[in-house]
Design a protein around this nucleic acid. Structure first.
Lengths: 145, 145
DNA sequence: GTCATTTCCTTAACATGTTAATTGTTGCCA
DNA sequence: TGGCAACAATTAACATGTTAAGGAAATGAC
């Protein structure tokens, strides 16, 4: 019994990629009319949910690496969806806040996003859906617990 | 009861991203010494498992889009890990095959990859691991069933 | 106070993801 | 056979992922 890697059709990394693609495809389609990307949407959602915060916290909550967030923040600022302000007490740090224009993007598309997610919840069933979220969380070393 | 999107910590797309990052991080670390990327590894694995095949099938089995595969195939060819040959009967099509050098990359690192995956299997337990794979597959519209 | 260290953020460089446009071939059919 | 639709693959353009290096500001030892 050799210890070879599993066939690709039962590979966890590939399964994760395909599932993500399946979930993101309709969301990307929905976002295409807004002109913002999936990651920009994620940043706006975090800002809408938690309010003004520093860049490190934002990167963590958005699951983005710093270099990506730097670019995305610049893009969103240029589009007028967020504002960037320096921390006067520590001028290295920076705070980011969603604007009314950015909030409108969220408000206008949140219902449709909710419907898409509800569709997947229905596909799996409420119980399996929660089970899936729990199992995924257990693969995330950053999750507390 | 407003129908708003779920908080980001119970968001399916974000949970998928974080789980993928948790799983891929040690695999990327393992691959860093080989000089190939995670996607290049995936392509080589598919070729090692199924043998010579046309580009469309390879893209499908590797879960890669065509433009990505074009670049990756060129990179792997330059590194001597795969060969590309035109189909004489239909000169639009192309076949890709792993070389002995490429196969050696797989052979040399497959055990370590297997150990990493086994670690996650142990983390979740055999039962939950299989459950997770099943649930993920149900989110993939490309999966038959 | 000064300098090395640390921290936060940005840039750089390269690979991939994504969509759209383009090129080269094949097949069809009037 | 001539022309057009369909197809395979590439290229282009832009955004992000990833790692490494760089720059500015704060911290701490002395």
């Amino acid at each position: 019994m050799t210890k070879s890697i599993p066939p690709t059709n039962r590979s966890l990394p590939i399964a994760l990629i395909r599932a993500r693609e399946g979930v993101m495809s309709p969301i990307r389609e929905m976002l295409s009319e807004t002109g913002i990307t999936e990651q920009q949407w994620r940043v706006l959602r975090v800002l809408a949910e938690f309010g003004r915060m520093d860049t490190k916290t934002l990167a963590d909550r958005s699951s983005l690496l710093f270099p990506s967030l730097t670019r995305i923040a610049a893009t969103l600022r240029d589009k007028g969806f967020v504002t960037q302000t320096r921390d006067d007490k520590d001028r290295r740090r920076q705070f980011i806040e969603i604007t009314a224009t950015g909030q409108k993007i969220i408000d206008d598309h949140a219902p449709q996003a909710a419907m898409i997610v509800a569709g997947f919840k229905e596909t799996l069933g409420d119980q399996d859906y929660e089970t899936l979220l729990d199992l995924l969380t257990r693969l995330d070393p950053g999750a507390q617990g």
